[in-house]
C-alpha cells in the first residue's frame, strides 16, 4: 500500500520549563510512505516512516507507545478524527493497516485537551490522570493489615461488573473524543469499581468528592452526556458508569461525612 500521511509536528512543548503555557507552534505536515504491508500494525507503519526520516537526516515523529498489545494505555493517536482510529474496541497499537486502503490519506494528531498539554509532536502529558487517582482512586489499606481474602465474599455479578470498570487502561481516549474534553468516563470507571466492591465502601463519599474536585481543578470540561467517550473507549467502559458516578456524587454531597 502507498499512503499519504498528514501528521501534527510540534517541536516546542505546550508548557515551558517554568510551567507556563506557550504557543507550541505546531502544524500538520505531509509525508508519503510506500510498500506498506496490510499485516503491519499502525505503529509499525510509523516505525517505517521514522526509519526513513532518520536515514534522510530528518527528525523522526515522536509518539508514545510501549506494550503494543493494547493494555498499557501509552499509545494515544487521534487518527482520522477518531481516538485510536476507525476500529472499535481497539487501541492504536492493535490497529492494523488492513483497516486502510491503498492511496488513502491518513490524518494523525495528538490527544487535544487543555489538561493534556503536548510534549512533542504526538506525545502529550497525562499526569493530570495520575493526580486524579492520587486524590482518592484507592482503598486505604496498608500492606500487611489484611484479613483472609475469602473473608470478603463478593457476589459474582458485582465482582464481574467491578472488573468491567477496572478494565480502563487510562489512555485518555475518552477525553480526546469529548467535545468538552471531559474526563468523566475515566474518573467514573474508578469510582464505580471501588463503590461496587465492599472493600471500597468506607471511603466512597470522600473518594468521589475528592476525585471530582481534582478533575475540575485539572481543567477537564463538563459532561453533556453525548456518549462519544464510551463509543471511542478501547476497553468499552459503558456510559452507565458516568450515571453511577453522578449518583455517588449527589449522594455524597447530600450526606457528606466531610464538613
Amino acid at each position: 500500500m502507498n499512503l499519504t500521511l498528514q501528521i501534527w509536528r510540534q517541536n516546542k512543548p505546550d508548557i515551558n520549563n517554568n510551567g507556563n503555557y506557550q504557543n507550541g507552534e505546531g502544524k500538520m505536515t505531509e509525508y508519503k510512505v510506500a510498500d506498506i504491508s496490510p499485516d503491519m500494525s499502525f505503529l509499525e507503519m510509523l516505525d517505517e516512516l521514522n526509519e526513513d526520516l532518520l536515514k534522510k537526516g530528518d527528525d523522526p515523529v515522536a509518539f508514545d507507545h510501549d506494550c503494543r498489545e493494547g493494555i498499557c494505555g501509552m499509545c494515544s493517536l487521534y487518527i482520522n478524527g477518531q481516538p485510536h482510529g476507525p476500529e472499535s474496541g481497539t487501541t492504536a497499537c492493535q490497529l492494523h493497516m488492513r483497516s486502510f486502503k491503498d492511496g488513502d490519506t491518513i490524518y494523525i494528531e495528538p490527544w487535544r485537551a487543555k489538561a493534556f498539554p503536548v510534549v512533542k509532536d504526538l506525545v502529550v502529558n497525562r499526569s493530570s490522570f495520575d493526580r486524579i487517582m492520587q486524590a482518592g482512586g484507592y482503598v486505604s489499606v496498608n500492606t500487611g493489615v489484611t484479613v483472609d481474602a475469602n473473608e470478603i465474599p463478593v457476589a459474582k455479578t458485582i465482582a464481574d461488573e467491578a472488573f468491567n470498570m477496572a478494565a480502563c487502561i487510562g489512555c485518555g481516549a475518552c477525553v480526546a473524543a469529548c467535545k468538552n474534553a471531559s474526563a468523566m468516563l475515566f474518573v467514573s470507571a474508578k469510582v464505580s469499581q471501588l463503590s461496587l466492591l465492599p472493600q471500597g465502601k468506607a471511603e466512597r463519599k470522600k473518594r468521589v468528592e475528592r476525585m471530582v474536585a481534582q478533575m475540575d481543578e485539572e481543567g477537564f470540561g463538563a459532561c453533556t452526556n453525548t456518549g462519544a467517550c464510551s463509543a471511542e473507549c478501547p476497553k468499552d467502559i459503558p456510559l452507565s458508569s458516568i450515571a453511577r458516578m453522578n449518583r455517588e456524587y449527589f449522594e455524597a454531597k447530600i450526606t457528606s461525612n466531610n464538613v
Binding site: V141, T146, V147, A149, I152, K156, D160, L197, Q199
Partner: peptide
C-alpha cells in the same frame, strides 16, 4: 492474595 483483595483487585469469583 489477601493484600490484593483488600485493595479491591477484582479477581474471578464463584
Amino acid at each position: 492474595i489477601d493484600q490484593c483483595v483488600a485493595q479491591g483487585v477484582p479477581f474471578a469469583r464463584e
